[in-house]
């Protein structure tokens, strides 16, 4: 502890000497600039956007420079592991534990390996689509077709957020038609462009997509090869219900609600509950990060949310603001992870 104090005071001295522009909130236990690495390598994606919005608000609150670096999960984990001082933080989403549950290379159990930090936003856009001239009009038809021996191909990116809804579909077929779940076949593709292309080429019957990326396709006339329809949005109806009433593009919130889990579409998780999936963004901390720093960031973010401004910014970009302190987030996400682990394992033979 003493050593840590010494080195941090050394850092402080150096920082004061060399970077006089930075000023600090008096009680900030994290000295110096903060680097936030994210689990995605894209600066055009939702993780970067959510991280940019929250870190901007946080930086203002604690009067520190925060920079978001889209290094991807692998390099992000390495960077996080090296720096226990709180100068490097990570922002990621449910992929952190889903990657582990699906046995993807490079993922470890995040609950054992890291401290789970506060969660702050949900992207409610994850969903599934069919072509407009598809024989399937809704989820029931898809599940029944698979249950009755018809092969249904679903284009997903394997091993995470994109696959979890597919796993739930498979699980639903298993519950209603035991033994028939293998009629639902995954077509493993990558980017959204590849998934769309698989639908255009007739290689897939259903594709994973999102409200943000696919809404305009649902408004194309039916004779357009590119026209699609939503069949399911994995987010809870109550989550989508918090979005701006105008929804996305020309599709209103109420229209989107028709596809939401638990309202328009019911995919069973087990005998008594429905499957839902909210893609949540949260912080990950180094395991050795001090409790003071954790508490400090918890409080700072709580204040950011109490101010109420960040919620508006998030909503403007089709995120649902949703703040949980580290302890709450840890508990919530662990429970979520455990429930998904059950269905993933039940499909393993």
């Amino acid at each position: 502890m003493k050593k840590l104090f010494q080195s941090s005071s050394l850092v402080l001295m150096a920082a004061c000497a060399l970077a006089p522009v930075a000023a600090y909130a008096a009680d900030n236990p994290i000295r110096g600039n903060i680097r936030v690495v994210i689990g995605s390598t894209s600066t055009g994606g939702d993780t970067y956007q959510a991280a940019a919005i929250i870190t901007e608000a946080l930086a203002k609150k604690i009067d520190t420079n925060i920079k978001v670096d889209a290094v991807g999960f692998s390099a992000g984990y390495q960077a996080l592991e090296r720096v226990p001082s709180g100068n490097t933080l990570m922002i990621f989403h449910d992929q952190a534990y889903l990657g582990y549950l699906y046995g993807q290379k490079g993922y470890e159990d995040p609950f054992a390996k890291w401290n789970i930090g506060p969660s702050f936003a949900i992207n409610p856009g994850n969903g599934y689509l069919v072509s407009k001239n598809s024989p399937y009009k809704n989820m029931d038809e898809i599940l029944n077709a698979a249950g009755n021996g018809k092969t249904v191909r679903v284009a997903i990116q394997p091993g995470g957020v994109s696959e979890i809804g597919y796993t739930a579909m498979k699980n639903a077929v298993r519950l209603a038609y035991p033994g028939q779940e293998d009629n639902l076949v995954a077509l493993n593709t990558g980017s959204q462009s590849d998934k769309n292309q698989a639908l255009f080429d007739g290689l897939a019957d259903v594709i994973n997509g999102s409200v943000q990326a696919n809404e305009q396709y649902t408004r194309l006339p039916a004779d357009d090869q590119k026209a699609m329809d939503f069949v399911w949005l994995t987010a809870k109806a109550s989550t989508i219900g918090q979005a701006n009433p105008n929804g996305m593009g020309e599709t209103s919130r109420d229209q989107l609600m028709q596809y939401a889990s638990g309202l328009g579409v019911n995919i069973p998780m087990d005998a008594d509950s429905d499957f839902t999936f909210d893609k949540e963004f949260f912080f990950l901390y180094n395991k050795r990060m001090s409790p003071e720093a954790i508490k400090f960031l918890d409080n700072a973010l709580a204040e950011v949310f109490a101010d109420g401004e960040v919620q508006e910014t998030l909503k403007k970009s089709f995120f649902i603001p949703n703040f949980r302190t580290s302890a709450e987030a840890q508990q919530h996400l662990k429970a979520k992870s455990d429930s998904y682990a059950k269905i993933i394992n039940s499909l393993h033979k």
Partner: peptide, 9 residues
């Protein structure tokens, strides 16, 4: 960079 983090030093 490890000793003086996030300042480009």
């Amino acid at each position: 960079g490890e000793v003086l983090p996030n300042m480009g030093l």
